[in-house]
Amino acid sequence: MNDKTFTLAEANALLPQLKADLQRLQALADQYERLYRELQRRRAQEGASSLREDVKNNVNGINDGDDPFFELEGRLDFLRLEVDMEVANFTRKGVLLKMISPGLIDFPAVLDGENVLICWKEGEERITHYHSWDEGFRGRKSHPEA
């Protein structure tokens, strides 16, 4: 990560773009989760019947190389790359994405000479709180400039 620090005004100015980025990321993560559950469901269904067929084909010397999960696994791999790229975009902007859903974003800052994190939680209209690096979200306090 870079050494960027934000003022409260800078963090609030960046917030609309971060909210849009977060919505894209959440949609991708939801899509990934749905496809992953679908893959698990199909594997469970295929399980015993596929194993019996594989044994029969291997005994008979037949191995056609068809993977019934190849396409779905490929889509999952691609979605994972997209999710990783979206997460990296937050880092490139100098912010810390702490949680995807609900969204939780920290902005490194200096307040009264102390390194702190200005924090925003999804659903909040604007950024109004901060906490120390050690306290985390539970140690949130009202920002004096909010």
Rank of each mutant, 00 (worst) to 15 (best):
P16T: 03
Q17I: 04
Q17L: 05
Q17S: 09
Q17D: 14
L18W: 00
L18A: 10
L18F: 07
K19V: 08
A20Q: 13
A20M: 00
A20G: 06
D21L: 13
D21T: 00
D21R: 09
L22S: 04
Q23P: 00
Q23W: 03
R24H: 05
L25K: 00
L25F: 07
Q26E: 07
L28G: 03
L28E: 07
A29M: 10
D30K: 10
D30C: 04
D30G: 09
Y32N: 07
E33D: 14
E33K: 15
R34E: 15
R34V: 14
R37C: 08
E38N: 09
E38H: 09
E38G: 01
L39I: 01
L39P: 03
L39S: 06
Q40F: 07
Q40E: 14
Q40P: 00
R41Q: 12
R41F: 11
R43I: 03
R43P: 00
R43L: 12
A44H: 15
Q45V: 06
Q45T: 13
Q45W: 04
G47S: 11
G47E: 14
A48D: 14
S50I: 07
L51F: 01
L51E: 12
E53I: 10
D54W: 11
V55E: 15
V55G: 02
K56F: 05
N57P: 02
N58M: 10
V59W: 13
N60C: 09
I62Y: 12
I62Q: 05
I62E: 15
D64L: 11
G65A: 13
G65F: 12
G65L: 14
D67F: 02
D67H: 04
D67P: 02
P68F: 13
F69C: 03
F70S: 12
F70Y: 13
F70L: 07
E71T: 06
G74M: 05
R75Q: 15
R75M: 11
L76V: 01
D77L: 15
D77F: 10
D77A: 13
F78P: 00
L79I: 05
R80A: 06
R80M: 10
R80F: 03
L81M: 08
L81C: 07
E82G: 05
V83H: 01
V83T: 02
D84H: 03
M85N: 09
E86P: 01
E86C: 08
V87F: 03
V87D: 02
A88M: 11
A88K: 13
A88W: 08
F90I: 12
T91L: 03
T91C: 05
G94L: 08
G94T: 08
V95D: 04
V95K: 09
L96N: 12
L97E: 07
L97F: 08
M99I: 01
M99H: 14
M99T: 12
S101V: 04
P102K: 09
G103I: 01
I105C: 02
D106I: 01
D106N: 04
D106F: 00
P108K: 12
P108V: 02
P108Q: 12
P108R: 11
